[in-house]
Simulated scan of single mutants.
Amino acid sequence: MKTALASVILLAISASCAMAQDKGEIAVFTKNKVDPFFEEARVGADVAAKGLGYSTVQYAPTRPNNFQEQIAQVEDAITRKPKGMVFVPVDTKGLKPSVDKVREAGIPIVNFIDMGDGNFNSYVIYDDHKMGADVTRILAEKLGGKGKIVIIEGIKGSATSDNRTAGAQETLKSYPQIQVVAVQAANYQRLQALQVMENLMQQFPEIDGVIAASDNMALGAIEAMESAGHSGTQVVSMDGTIDGVQAVSAGRLLASAEFSGFQMGCTAVEIIDRLTKGEAVPERLELKAEMITRETADKFGQPLERRTCKSLKDLGLAS
């Protein structure tokens, strides 16, 4: 009898613990499945959700950055009635009606990575303008304040890409002997950046520096130059992905600015958790980007399976 009673108690405790760790589902939206940056964001969201007792469902267009597909995915997510959504819009303005529908359905939604229009509960971002400025300054100083450079943008109209380019261009005003010979978009795609760089090298035999709006594109540009035997060009970028950090360590990439998709995923999920508890959250939360150089690269780029989320408290952003 005592054994049976003990078994019932253990089952009850086990069920209670399982329920405590089953707070519901968080929908996580990223722009595509091909950019390693978004993989880092998805893993960060998964790690944070698991630690807080949630499950996740991941949404990303099968065609990279496809606007209509993301709209359809938002509609699907609304029907699942998740505890919250973590969202980066393919189009920062065009997804506004979809974001507003999420809020009308009573679902909290946190915007991360690209700052989009809509009735978001909160934003988790970095200062892209400052990042563009900071890596450009590193490049300009390396070039001794003179030379010819190209800028490879992400997606035109994307707040992240536009602000990074603006930061670079404003900084270059302080270096009048540096000439920007071309500004071209590669849509954050490595292969497109390789092709863009191949074309740019044909148009401009002398290129002293490259500013790329992401590590992914920087690596594509570097591959194009290496294949053509074009050496000596200095390249800077932004994101601080694992591949990007490895390229900095190897001396292939001069510098990258940390734009941690992993930590943004972590933080956005923590904000969702706070919203579900009825707690106050910041309307806008800006994370600090560090510069990744060969001297500091060892601090960055850990394998995803070894990373842990920093809480808002750890970041000094909450009590």
Rank of each mutant, 00 (worst) to 15 (best):
I125M: 12
V57F: 12
M131E: 13
V34Y: 12
Y54F: 15
N119C: 04
L139P: 07
G132Y: 02
L95C: 09
E141S: 09
F29D: 00
T56C: 08
I71R: 10
A41D: 03
F67H: 11
E40T: 12
E25A: 03
F120E: 01
M85W: 03
G84K: 02
T136C: 07
P64T: 04
Y123S: 00
S55V: 09
F87V: 01
D117S: 11
F112P: 02
A140F: 04
A41L: 15
N121Q: 14
V57H: 09
D117Q: 14
R137F: 01
L139Q: 06
K81I: 06
K23P: 12
T30A: 10
G84L: 02
P64I: 04
L95F: 06
R42C: 03
I138N: 07
K81S: 14
K83Q: 15
L139N: 08
Q58F: 15
K142H: 10
A60Q: 03
T79Q: 12
R80N: 03
R42S: 10
S98G: 01
G132N: 06
F87M: 01
A105Q: 01
V88F: 05
A45L: 01
R103N: 10
P36L: 10
D134Y: 05
V110I: 15
H129E: 14
A49F: 07
F37R: 03
D128N: 15
Y59P: 01
G44K: 05
I78M: 08
G106I: 07
L143M: 15
I78K: 01
Q70W: 08
P36V: 09
K96C: 08
R137N: 14
F38C: 03
I78H: 02
N65Q: 11
Y59F: 15
Y126H: 13
V47P: 03
I107W: 05
M131K: 10
D127Q: 13
G118C: 07
V110K: 01
E104D: 15
F112Q: 09
S55D: 14
F37K: 00
P64H: 07
D128K: 04
A49W: 04
E69I: 03
D35V: 13
A60F: 13
A133T: 10
L95V: 05
V135W: 04
E104Y: 01
P97N: 09
T92R: 04
L143P: 06
S122N: 06
S98Q: 13
D46I: 08
G94C: 08
P89I: 00
K101R: 15
A48W: 01
Y59S: 00
Q68E: 14
K83M: 11
G84E: 02
E39R: 14
P36E: 09
R80H: 08
D100K: 00
N66K: 06
I26N: 06
A48K: 11
N119D: 15
L52H: 13
F120W: 06
L139D: 06
N65C: 03
F67K: 09
N119P: 04
V110G: 06
S55W: 02
